[in-house]
Amino acid sequence: MTQAPLQLFDRRALEAHRSRRQQEALFLHYMARVEAEDRLSLVNRSFTAPAVVCPFPEVWERFGPEAKIVADEEVLDLEDGAHDVVIHAMCLHWANDPVGQLIQCRRALKEDGLLLVMLLGGRTLHELRSAMAEAETILLGGLSPRIAPMGEIRDLGGLLQRAGFALPVADLVPLKAEYRDVPHLIHDLRGMGETNALAQRLKRPAPRGLFQLADHIYRKHFANAEGRLPATFELVCLTGWSPSDNQQKPLRPGSAQMRLADALKVPESKL
């Protein structure tokens, strides 16, 4: 009997967390929409058949009447070759199979269609991770899985190539928010459905005093001059194109017609 692969995330818990969302806490999702709109406005092309994969459709309902809003599920409700742009918005960091998600998006694109992915990157909540790790080590003598791992930008960019996209580009937008204390930060994370949904998370309540100690450590190492707690959020943006014969191709090594020194009009260095 073939054993099912281990799942990093508990999708049932994730959906339960998202169902308790609060609109005022979805600021990262609205910022992602603005960022997507800005980036699409810079592309010298008109898109007429967009699709948006997202956990919160109300954030994207004004994106355009022609846009198809697709629920963030393991199998995406996307038709092959139906769209000229697909936006995968703020949910790839919760995917058990991120490459599979991107492959589904590529198949849904027409030839030379654009994929735009917005997700949280590796340094997101690094202050909270550090404070919680130190607090758990002091109280429990070890660590438990509490905050989901998030990919570094160099690794996330490689996902596009693995999924078969051409001309992949990865960049990030660093964001900062400030909070009164750790409970205030966790309240916001609950409101945006971003609390712990790891499959291997502890299923029992946190030890008494854990969050108070984490708040003390967070404040000791990261508090600003006003006594507020800064929280880092990395918004990673990935772009790639479905393959087409009309796209620019890199030149073959050794095919240049002019030496670099001649092009720059400088003497050639001989080492």
Rank of each mutant, 00 (worst) to 15 (best):
residue 167 L to W: 14
residue 130 S to E: 03
residue 240 G to M: 02
residue 44 N to Y: 05
residue 228 R to H: 12
residue 190 R to L: 11
residue 108 A to V: 01
residue 4 A to D: 15
residue 182 V to E: 00
residue 164 G to K: 08
residue 222 F to G: 00
residue 55 P to K: 00
residue 100 G to M: 10
residue 139 L to D: 11
residue 163 A to P: 11
residue 114 L to M: 13
residue 266 V to T: 14
residue 122 G to K: 04
residue 69 I to R: 03
residue 96 N to R: 03
residue 31 M to A: 15
residue 16 A to R: 10
residue 171 D to G: 14
residue 26 L to M: 03
residue 204 R to A: 05
residue 156 L to D: 09
residue 82 A to H: 05
residue 231 A to M: 09
residue 50 P to Y: 06
residue 57 P to W: 08
residue 51 A to N: 11
residue 253 P to N: 08
residue 238 L to A: 08
residue 66 E to L: 03
residue 177 A to W: 11
residue 60 W to K: 02
residue 266 V to Y: 15
residue 78 L to N: 13
residue 232 T to Q: 05
residue 55 P to L: 11
residue 1 M to D: 14
residue 109 L to Q: 06
residue 49 A to M: 03
residue 236 V to C: 07
residue 74 E to N: 00
residue 61 E to C: 15
residue 225 A to G: 12
residue 15 E to T: 04
residue 178 E to A: 14
residue 183 P to G: 00
residue 204 R to D: 04
residue 49 A to S: 04
residue 229 L to E: 05
residue 133 A to L: 07
residue 212 Q to P: 02
residue 33 R to V: 07
residue 148 A to H: 03
residue 27 F to R: 15
residue 28 L to H: 07
residue 38 D to C: 06
residue 128 L to P: 06
residue 125 L to D: 01
residue 25 A to E: 13
residue 84 D to K: 00
residue 11 R to M: 10
residue 55 P to C: 13
residue 59 V to C: 12
residue 174 P to N: 11
residue 262 D to T: 12
residue 256 A to P: 00
residue 164 G to W: 10
residue 151 G to Y: 06
residue 197 A to L: 07
residue 104 Q to Y: 14
residue 246 N to Q: 07
residue 212 Q to L: 07
residue 105 C to A: 09
residue 260 L to Q: 08
residue 173 V to G: 07
residue 270 K to Q: 07
residue 96 N to Q: 02
residue 188 D to P: 07
